[in-house]
Design a protein around this nucleic acid. Structure first.
Length: 443
RNA sequence: CGGAGUAUAGCUCAGCCUGGUAGAGCGCUUGCUUCGGGAGCAAGAGGUCGUUGGUUCGAAUCCAGCUACUCCGACCA
């Protein structure tokens, strides 16, 4: 992408409405624009990040055996009346009336819809286990949205729903998602700690929140330090196997959010030097809730004994749009965002210090062309801005690697390769710069 | 929903107290000089001062209503 043809409306000053660093940086880097309280347009750079996050979530869901579909944003009220949540959900649910005076709603979640899909098509235990997921915009009319997309009213969420015949099988489905989540967050460069969670209004008796640690996190968390650096299960994990040992190993140590925190137990179970009190951001939440929806909505399957029973369900959410902000909270410095390569909007940028210099432009074009051809997500800054302004903007936007091409370097036969995270600046031939990027870019 | 603020140029803000017809910096346009860390000079464009009403000879300024946004609390991926 040539920056001269791109749309990157970066701001030099911080808009006054932004309180936390991720919101400030997202506005300044031209990722989002606010429309109303908790409602945002995703500008091109922000959309790229969102799509990278989505892609990772999708790959790891598929790896764990989940199947993607897409449910609507606007739903009819009927199913919610059936489950009993139309009254129970309260004002957070945005209710809409259509031209025929029918009651509609903008979905805050999708248990009812998916349960309806399931009961329409699945009748036998032989079609189980099943895990269906989608990545869709949701709306919750929060009393007080804040912190940009961290707690918006409209947000993009991945939610998966598992269906099993027995509680034991349902627990295995839960363990699969548990492991998939750890791999998912790890791939985004995050250290996520699973914490025993309150099941809240969704109900059920088994639930974990996935928390990433960040000073600006909205909830206080308490855990054993060992958990923070525990490696994820890994992409070669066998999702067909019994994952209970894996799950048990990762939930044996103390980890709790404020609501579930038991100070006495914390002190009893965790040696003092390993006690970690920090702040965290919830980026995922998984629930096992059995027949909470399948019973009232009569989503029954016939078992091998010929008897019908409500299907055992669980639901598994990832806050996709929230993750964009959460990653920034966990990875930034005074100059701006530091994207982990896997979610960076562009993995590299070629920066022409002198677009009016033919020799400089020739080197830029050849590097840019080679990187494009190799499938690297590369931005080419061919604009006539001054060097300082260019570098500042690209550092603000967090591009992981810059290939800086200037007249001095070109005369000496070198370009500069700058690493955003470490700040290192290395001179090398254009050829070597291309090689280093093609070799390391994971796409 | 309770409490507290804010609303003036694209952005950050001043002006309001003490009423007299709107400013700065950055950004934008044009030209020249510059060009390796957010350039300099010159000339420009850009605002029904959130909105409605009231007071007044006269309102960005004083008063009231409304709306939007932000912050603190209860709620949440």
């Amino acid at each position: 992408m040539r920056l001269s043809r791109y749309f990157l409306p970066a701001l030099r000053e911080t808009p006054s409405e932004a309180q936390i660093v991720s919101h400030q940086l997202m506005l300044r880097a031209g990722m989002i624009k606010q429309n109303g309280a908790g409602i945002y347009t995703w500008l091109p750079l922000g959309l790229r990040v969102l799509q990278k996050i989505e892609a990772i979530v999708r790959e790891e869901q598929e790896r764990a055996g989940a199947v993607e579909l897409l449910m609507p944003t606007i739903q009819q009220a009927e199913l919610w009346k059936e489950s009993g949540r139309y009254e129970a959900y309260g004002k957070e649910m945005l209710r809409i009336v259509d031209r025929h005076e029918r009651e509609m709603l903008f979905g805050p979640t999708n248990e009812e819809l998916i349960t309806d899909v399931f009961r329409s098509f699945v009748k036998s235990y032989k079609q189980l286990p099943l895990n269906l997921y989608h990545i869709q915009w949701k709306f919750r009319d929060e009393i007080r949205p804040r912190f940009g997309v961290m707690r918006g009213r409209e947000f993009l969420m991945k939610d998966a729903y598992s269906f099993d015949l027995t509680p034991d099988a349902a627990r295995q489905a839960y363990y699969r998602m548990f492991c998939a989540y750890l791999n998912t967050f790890s791939r985004m460069g995050l250290k996520a700690v699973p914490m025993r969670a309150d099941t809240g209004p969704i109900g059920g008796d088994l639930s974990h929140e996935f928390i990433i640690l960040a000073d600006t996190g909205e909830s206080a968390v308490f855990c054993d330090r060992e958990l923070v650096d525990m490696a994820p299960p890994g992409l070669d994990l066998d999702f067909q196997a019994d994952l209970k040992p894996e799950f048990d190993r990762r939930t044996a140590l103390y980890a709790a959010t404020e609501e579930m925190h038991d100070p006495a137990r914390f002190e009893r179970e965790v040696p003092e030097e390993r006690r970690l009190s920090a702040r965290g951001i919830e980026v995922g939440h998984i629930f096992y809730f059995g027949a909470k929806y399948s019973a009232p909505m009569r989503a029954h399957v016939t078992g091998p004994d010929g008897k019908d029973a409500p299907v055992e369900m669980g639901s598994y959410g990832v806050g996709v749009s929230r993750l964009a902000a959460a990653i920034i909270e966990a990875s930034h410095d005074e100059r701006g965002i530091i994207w982990p390569a896997a979610v960076a909007p562009f993995t590299a940028a070629v920066v022409s210090l002198r677009p009016d210099d033919a020799a400089v432009s020739a080197v830029c074009e050849s590097v840019y062309g080679a990187l494009l051809k190799a499938g690297v997500d590369v931005l080419y800054d061919d604009t006539p801005e001054r060097p300082g302004a260019k570098l500042s903007t690209l550092e603000l936007a967090g591009v992981p690697t810059l290939v800086v091409v200037g007249p001095k370097g070109v005369k000496a036969g070198v370009v500069e390769v700058r690493d955003r995270a470490t700040g290192s600046v290395v001179e090398m031939s254009a050829e070597a710069a291309i090689q280093s990027l093609v070799g390391t870019s994971g796409g």
